[in-house]
Amino acid sequence: MGDVALRIENLTKEYKISKGERVRALDSLNLQVNAGTMFGLLGPQGAGKSTLLKILVGLSKPTKGRTLIFGREQRDWRTRARIGFLTQEPCFCDFLTGEELLLHTGRFFGIPPEESSKRAEELLSLVGLEEAKSRKIKDYSREMLQRIGIARALINDPELLLLDEPEAGLDPRNQKEIRGIITALSGRGKTILLTSSHLVETGSICDSVAIIYQGRVTRRGRLTELLRKGEGKKVTFRIEKKGVLNTINASYRSEEANGQITVHVPHQKACDEIISTVLSRGGSIIRVEDEQLSLEEIYQEEILRETHV
Protein backbone atom coordinates (compact mmCIF):
# COMPACT_ATOMS: atom_id res chain seq x y z
CA MET A 1 0.00 0.00 0.00
CA GLY A 2 2.92 2.31 0.72
CA ASP A 3 4.44 2.01 -2.77
CA VAL A 4 3.97 4.93 -5.10
CA ALA A 5 2.24 3.96 -8.33
CA LEU A 6 2.18 7.38 -9.87
CA ARG A 7 4.18 10.49 -9.12
CA ILE A 8 3.56 13.73 -10.95
CA GLU A 9 6.10 16.46 -10.39
CA ASN A 10 5.66 20.09 -11.34
CA LEU A 11 3.68 19.18 -14.45
CA THR A 12 2.81 22.06 -16.73
CA LYS A 13 1.06 21.90 -20.05
CA GLU A 14 0.57 24.89 -22.31
CA TYR A 15 -1.25 25.00 -25.62
CA LYS A 16 -0.76 27.55 -28.36
CA ILE A 17 -4.16 28.88 -29.30
CA SER A 18 -3.18 31.67 -31.67
CA LYS A 19 -0.19 33.81 -32.57
CA GLY A 20 1.80 34.20 -29.39
CA GLU A 21 -1.20 33.37 -27.24
CA ARG A 22 -0.91 30.39 -24.94
CA VAL A 23 -3.33 28.76 -22.58
CA ARG A 24 -2.14 26.83 -19.55
CA ALA A 25 -4.08 23.60 -19.12
CA LEU A 26 -1.92 22.29 -16.27
CA ASP A 27 -0.04 24.57 -13.93
CA SER A 28 2.88 23.09 -11.95
CA LEU A 29 0.76 20.18 -10.87
CA ASN A 30 2.05 17.80 -8.20
CA LEU A 31 0.30 14.59 -7.33
CA GLN A 32 1.03 11.21 -5.89
CA VAL A 33 -1.07 8.08 -6.09
CA ASN A 34 -0.20 5.15 -3.86
CA ALA A 35 -0.31 1.62 -5.21
CA GLY A 36 -3.50 -0.29 -4.58
CA THR A 37 -5.62 2.79 -3.93
CA MET A 38 -8.42 4.44 -5.81
CA PHE A 39 -7.73 8.10 -6.45
CA GLY A 40 -10.37 10.50 -7.69
CA LEU A 41 -9.37 13.58 -9.64
CA LEU A 42 -12.39 15.79 -9.37
CA GLY A 43 -13.11 19.04 -11.12
CA PRO A 44 -15.32 20.84 -13.58
CA GLN A 45 -15.11 20.51 -17.36
CA GLY A 46 -11.92 22.12 -18.68
CA ALA A 47 -10.11 21.88 -15.33
CA GLY A 48 -7.26 19.88 -16.88
CA LYS A 49 -8.29 16.34 -15.89
CA SER A 50 -8.31 14.87 -19.40
CA THR A 51 -5.12 16.72 -20.31
CA LEU A 52 -3.38 15.07 -17.37
CA LEU A 53 -4.58 11.62 -18.41
CA LYS A 54 -3.54 12.26 -22.00
CA ILE A 55 -0.03 13.04 -20.79
CA LEU A 56 0.01 9.91 -18.64
CA VAL A 57 -0.75 7.66 -21.61
CA GLY A 58 1.57 9.50 -24.00
CA LEU A 59 -1.03 11.18 -26.18
CA SER A 60 0.32 14.57 -25.26
CA LYS A 61 3.70 15.85 -24.14
CA PRO A 62 4.11 18.06 -21.10
CA THR A 63 5.60 21.53 -21.48
CA LYS A 64 7.44 21.11 -18.19
CA GLY A 65 7.70 18.65 -15.34
CA ARG A 66 7.73 14.87 -15.27
CA THR A 67 5.59 11.86 -14.52
CA LEU A 68 6.84 8.63 -13.03
CA ILE A 69 4.77 5.47 -13.30
CA PHE A 70 5.99 2.80 -10.92
CA GLY A 71 9.25 4.72 -10.76
CA ARG A 72 9.74 4.73 -14.52
CA GLU A 73 9.61 7.78 -16.78
CA GLN A 74 6.29 7.89 -18.60
CA ARG A 75 8.02 8.85 -21.87
CA ASP A 76 9.09 5.24 -22.27
CA TRP A 77 6.34 3.68 -24.43
CA ARG A 78 6.81 0.30 -22.70
CA THR A 79 5.41 1.84 -19.52
CA ARG A 80 2.01 1.67 -21.22
CA ALA A 81 2.13 -2.13 -20.92
CA ARG A 82 1.40 -1.63 -17.21
CA ILE A 83 -1.46 0.78 -17.77
CA GLY A 84 -5.09 0.33 -18.72
CA PHE A 85 -6.81 3.40 -20.13
CA LEU A 86 -10.41 4.27 -20.79
CA THR A 87 -10.86 7.44 -22.78
CA GLN A 88 -13.78 9.77 -22.36
CA GLU A 89 -16.46 8.79 -24.91
CA PRO A 90 -14.71 5.60 -26.01
CA CYS A 91 -14.68 4.76 -29.70
CA PHE A 92 -13.43 1.49 -31.18
CA CYS A 93 -13.41 -0.37 -34.51
CA ASP A 94 -17.16 -0.79 -34.69
CA PHE A 95 -17.16 -3.76 -37.06
CA LEU A 96 -15.52 -5.94 -34.43
CA THR A 97 -17.59 -7.78 -31.85
CA GLY A 98 -16.97 -7.09 -28.18
CA GLU A 99 -15.01 -10.31 -27.85
CA GLU A 100 -12.96 -9.63 -30.98
CA LEU A 101 -12.04 -6.20 -29.66
CA LEU A 102 -10.62 -7.69 -26.48
CA LEU A 103 -8.68 -10.36 -28.39
CA HIS A 104 -7.37 -7.74 -30.82
CA THR A 105 -6.24 -5.52 -27.93
CA GLY A 106 -4.61 -8.51 -26.24
CA ARG A 107 -2.30 -8.93 -29.26
CA PHE A 108 -0.77 -5.49 -28.66
CA PHE A 109 0.30 -6.67 -25.21
CA GLY A 110 1.75 -9.90 -26.56
CA ILE A 111 -0.80 -12.01 -24.70
CA PRO A 112 -1.05 -15.54 -26.19
CA PRO A 113 -4.45 -16.12 -27.92
CA GLU A 114 -5.61 -18.82 -25.46
CA GLU A 115 -4.76 -16.65 -22.48
CA SER A 116 -6.36 -13.65 -24.14
CA SER A 117 -9.51 -15.62 -24.84
CA LYS A 118 -9.73 -16.76 -21.22
CA ARG A 119 -9.25 -13.23 -19.93
CA ALA A 120 -11.82 -11.88 -22.40
CA GLU A 121 -14.41 -14.31 -21.05
CA GLU A 122 -13.71 -13.24 -17.47
CA LEU A 123 -13.79 -9.56 -18.28
CA LEU A 124 -16.97 -9.76 -20.33
CA SER A 125 -18.54 -11.42 -17.34
CA LEU A 126 -17.14 -8.76 -14.97
CA VAL A 127 -18.63 -5.91 -16.99
CA GLY A 128 -21.86 -7.77 -17.66
CA LEU A 129 -21.50 -8.18 -21.40
CA GLU A 130 -21.44 -12.00 -21.77
CA GLU A 131 -24.73 -11.90 -23.65
CA ALA A 132 -23.52 -9.21 -26.04
CA LYS A 133 -20.03 -10.56 -26.66
CA SER A 134 -20.83 -11.67 -30.21
CA ARG A 135 -22.64 -8.48 -31.09
CA LYS A 136 -20.86 -5.91 -33.22
CA ILE A 137 -19.71 -2.81 -31.36
CA LYS A 138 -21.65 -0.57 -33.73
CA ASP A 139 -24.80 -2.06 -32.17
CA TYR A 140 -23.67 -1.26 -28.62
CA SER A 141 -25.37 1.46 -26.58
CA ARG A 142 -23.39 4.29 -24.95
CA GLU A 143 -23.38 2.45 -21.66
CA MET A 144 -22.28 -0.84 -23.27
CA LEU A 145 -19.42 1.03 -24.95
CA GLN A 146 -18.33 2.24 -21.54
CA ARG A 147 -18.46 -1.33 -20.21
CA ILE A 148 -16.49 -2.80 -23.11
CA GLY A 149 -14.04 0.08 -22.74
CA ILE A 150 -13.41 -0.89 -19.12
CA ALA A 151 -12.99 -4.55 -20.12
CA ARG A 152 -10.56 -3.51 -22.85
CA ALA A 153 -8.57 -1.41 -20.40
CA LEU A 154 -8.22 -4.50 -18.20
CA ILE A 155 -7.16 -7.06 -20.82
CA ASN A 156 -3.48 -6.72 -19.88
CA ASP A 157 -4.28 -7.02 -16.17
CA PRO A 158 -2.83 -3.52 -15.64
CA GLU A 159 -1.30 -2.38 -12.40
CA LEU A 160 -2.56 1.14 -12.99
CA LEU A 161 -5.98 1.86 -14.41
CA LEU A 162 -6.73 5.33 -15.77
CA LEU A 163 -10.39 6.08 -16.29
CA ASP A 164 -11.38 9.36 -17.86
CA GLU A 165 -14.91 10.28 -16.81
CA PRO A 166 -16.17 6.68 -16.85
CA GLU A 167 -19.68 7.78 -15.89
CA ALA A 168 -20.01 10.63 -18.37
CA GLY A 169 -23.13 10.60 -20.50
CA LEU A 170 -24.79 7.76 -18.57
CA ASP A 171 -28.10 7.80 -16.76
CA PRO A 172 -28.03 7.52 -12.92
CA ARG A 173 -28.79 3.78 -12.93
CA ASN A 174 -25.92 3.00 -15.31
CA GLN A 175 -23.62 5.40 -13.48
CA LYS A 176 -24.24 3.40 -10.34
CA GLU A 177 -23.52 0.13 -12.13
CA ILE A 178 -20.27 1.46 -13.59
CA ARG A 179 -19.26 2.66 -10.11
CA GLY A 180 -20.00 -0.83 -8.87
CA ILE A 181 -17.62 -2.32 -11.43
CA ILE A 182 -14.91 0.20 -10.53
CA THR A 183 -15.33 -0.51 -6.82
CA ALA A 184 -15.02 -4.25 -7.54
CA LEU A 185 -11.77 -3.58 -9.40
CA SER A 186 -10.43 -1.58 -6.50
CA GLY A 187 -11.20 -4.56 -4.29
CA ARG A 188 -8.89 -6.64 -6.48
CA GLY A 189 -5.97 -4.43 -5.51
CA LYS A 190 -5.73 -2.34 -8.67
CA THR A 191 -4.43 1.20 -8.52
CA ILE A 192 -7.10 3.35 -10.07
CA LEU A 193 -6.99 6.99 -11.07
CA LEU A 194 -10.33 8.21 -12.25
CA THR A 195 -11.51 11.64 -13.22
CA SER A 196 -14.98 12.93 -12.74
CA SER A 197 -17.10 16.00 -12.43
CA HIS A 198 -19.58 14.04 -10.27
CA LEU A 199 -18.11 15.06 -6.97
CA VAL A 200 -20.14 13.32 -4.36
CA GLU A 201 -20.88 10.07 -6.18
CA THR A 202 -17.34 9.52 -7.41
CA GLY A 203 -15.68 10.94 -4.33
CA SER A 204 -17.57 8.51 -2.16
CA ILE A 205 -15.97 5.44 -3.78
CA CYS A 206 -12.39 6.82 -3.75
CA ASP A 207 -9.79 6.31 -1.04
CA SER A 208 -8.48 9.79 -1.65
CA VAL A 209 -9.34 12.66 -3.93
CA ALA A 210 -7.90 15.84 -5.32
CA ILE A 211 -9.86 18.81 -6.53
CA ILE A 212 -8.40 20.26 -9.69
CA TYR A 213 -9.30 23.66 -11.03
CA GLN A 214 -7.66 25.63 -13.84
CA GLY A 215 -4.84 23.11 -14.03
CA ARG A 216 -3.97 23.28 -10.34
CA VAL A 217 -4.76 20.97 -7.46
CA THR A 218 -6.59 23.14 -4.99
CA ARG A 219 -7.26 20.48 -2.37
CA ARG A 220 -6.22 16.90 -1.85
CA GLY A 221 -6.35 14.23 0.73
CA ARG A 222 -8.35 11.32 2.00
CA LEU A 223 -12.05 11.89 1.68
CA THR A 224 -12.52 11.87 5.46
CA GLU A 225 -9.78 14.48 5.87
CA LEU A 226 -11.32 16.67 3.23
CA LEU A 227 -14.68 16.43 4.90
CA ARG A 228 -13.06 17.26 8.23
CA LYS A 229 -11.54 20.30 6.59
CA GLY A 230 -15.06 21.04 5.55
CA GLU A 231 -16.07 21.96 9.07
CA GLY A 232 -17.11 25.39 8.00
CA LYS A 233 -18.90 28.32 9.55
CA LYS A 234 -22.16 30.03 8.83
CA VAL A 235 -22.15 33.75 9.65
CA THR A 236 -25.46 35.60 9.74
CA PHE A 237 -25.39 39.40 9.90
CA ARG A 238 -27.24 42.57 9.03
CA ILE A 239 -25.62 45.44 7.11
CA GLU A 240 -26.80 48.53 5.26
CA LYS A 241 -23.82 49.14 2.99
CA LYS A 242 -24.40 47.01 -0.14
CA GLY A 243 -20.86 47.52 -1.46
CA VAL A 244 -19.44 45.47 1.36
CA LEU A 245 -21.90 42.72 0.68
CA ASN A 246 -20.76 42.52 -2.94
CA THR A 247 -17.15 41.85 -1.97
CA ILE A 248 -18.21 39.16 0.47
CA ASN A 249 -20.63 37.59 -1.98
CA ALA A 250 -18.01 37.42 -4.64
CA SER A 251 -15.86 35.11 -2.55
CA TYR A 252 -18.31 32.87 -0.74
CA ARG A 253 -21.73 31.36 -1.15
CA SER A 254 -24.39 33.44 0.50
CA GLU A 255 -28.11 33.93 0.77
CA GLU A 256 -30.28 36.85 1.83
CA ALA A 257 -33.64 36.63 3.64
CA ASN A 258 -35.66 39.04 5.81
CA GLY A 259 -32.88 41.61 5.65
CA GLN A 260 -30.38 39.15 7.06
CA ILE A 261 -27.44 37.83 5.12
CA THR A 262 -25.97 34.41 5.72
CA VAL A 263 -22.51 33.62 4.37
CA HIS A 264 -21.04 30.10 4.30
CA VAL A 265 -17.29 30.03 4.79
CA PRO A 266 -14.99 27.02 4.75
CA HIS A 267 -12.79 27.88 7.75
CA GLN A 268 -12.41 30.01 10.89
CA LYS A 269 -10.01 32.49 9.29
CA ALA A 270 -12.53 33.43 6.62
CA CYS A 271 -15.19 33.68 9.31
CA ASP A 272 -13.04 36.12 11.33
CA GLU A 273 -12.40 38.22 8.23
CA ILE A 274 -16.11 38.54 7.51
CA ILE A 275 -16.96 39.44 11.09
CA SER A 276 -14.24 42.09 11.06
CA THR A 277 -15.46 43.53 7.73
CA VAL A 278 -19.09 43.61 8.82
CA LEU A 279 -18.33 45.27 12.16
CA SER A 280 -15.96 47.83 10.64
CA ARG A 281 -18.72 48.89 8.18
CA GLY A 282 -21.33 49.34 10.87
CA GLY A 283 -23.08 46.02 10.48
CA SER A 284 -24.18 43.70 13.26
CA ILE A 285 -23.50 40.03 13.67
CA ILE A 286 -26.61 38.02 14.47
CA ARG A 287 -25.11 34.58 14.93
CA VAL A 288 -22.15 32.35 14.00
CA GLU A 289 -22.77 28.60 13.64
CA ASP A 290 -20.65 25.57 12.85
CA GLU A 291 -21.44 23.87 9.60
CA GLN A 292 -20.42 20.51 8.14
CA LEU A 293 -19.85 21.01 4.42
CA SER A 294 -20.42 18.17 2.01
CA LEU A 295 -17.79 17.38 -0.61
CA GLU A 296 -19.99 19.10 -3.15
CA GLU A 297 -20.06 22.24 -1.02
CA ILE A 298 -16.31 22.15 -0.41
CA TYR A 299 -15.83 21.89 -4.13
CA GLN A 300 -18.20 24.77 -4.83
CA GLU A 301 -16.47 26.91 -2.21
CA GLU A 302 -13.10 26.10 -3.80
CA ILE A 303 -14.26 26.97 -7.27
CA LEU A 304 -15.92 30.19 -6.10
CA ARG A 305 -12.81 31.19 -4.19
CA GLU A 306 -10.47 30.34 -7.09
CA THR A 307 -12.65 32.25 -9.53
CA HIS A 308 -12.49 35.41 -7.48
CA VAL A 309 -8.87 35.30 -6.34
Binding site: K54, V57, G58, L59, W77, R78, T79, R80, A81, I83, F85, T87, Q88, E89, P90, C91, F92, C93, T105, F108, F109, G149, R152
Partner: peptide, 16 residues
Amino acid sequence: EEGKNKLYSLLSLPVR
Protein backbone atom coordinates in the same frame (compact mmCIF):
# COMPACT_ATOMS: atom_id res chain seq x y z
CA GLU B 1 -14.49 10.47 -39.38
CA GLU B 2 -15.06 9.22 -35.83
CA GLY B 3 -12.65 11.88 -34.59
CA LYS B 4 -9.70 11.42 -32.30
CA ASN B 5 -11.21 9.09 -29.71
CA LYS B 6 -10.52 5.98 -31.76
CA LEU B 7 -6.92 7.05 -32.11
CA TYR B 8 -6.67 7.74 -28.36
CA SER B 9 -7.70 4.15 -27.64
CA LEU B 10 -5.10 2.84 -30.06
CA LEU B 11 -2.26 5.09 -28.94
CA SER B 12 -2.74 4.25 -25.28
CA LEU B 13 -1.53 0.73 -26.06
CA PRO B 14 2.15 -0.18 -25.77
CA VAL B 15 2.93 0.49 -29.40
CA ARG B 16 5.17 3.07 -31.05
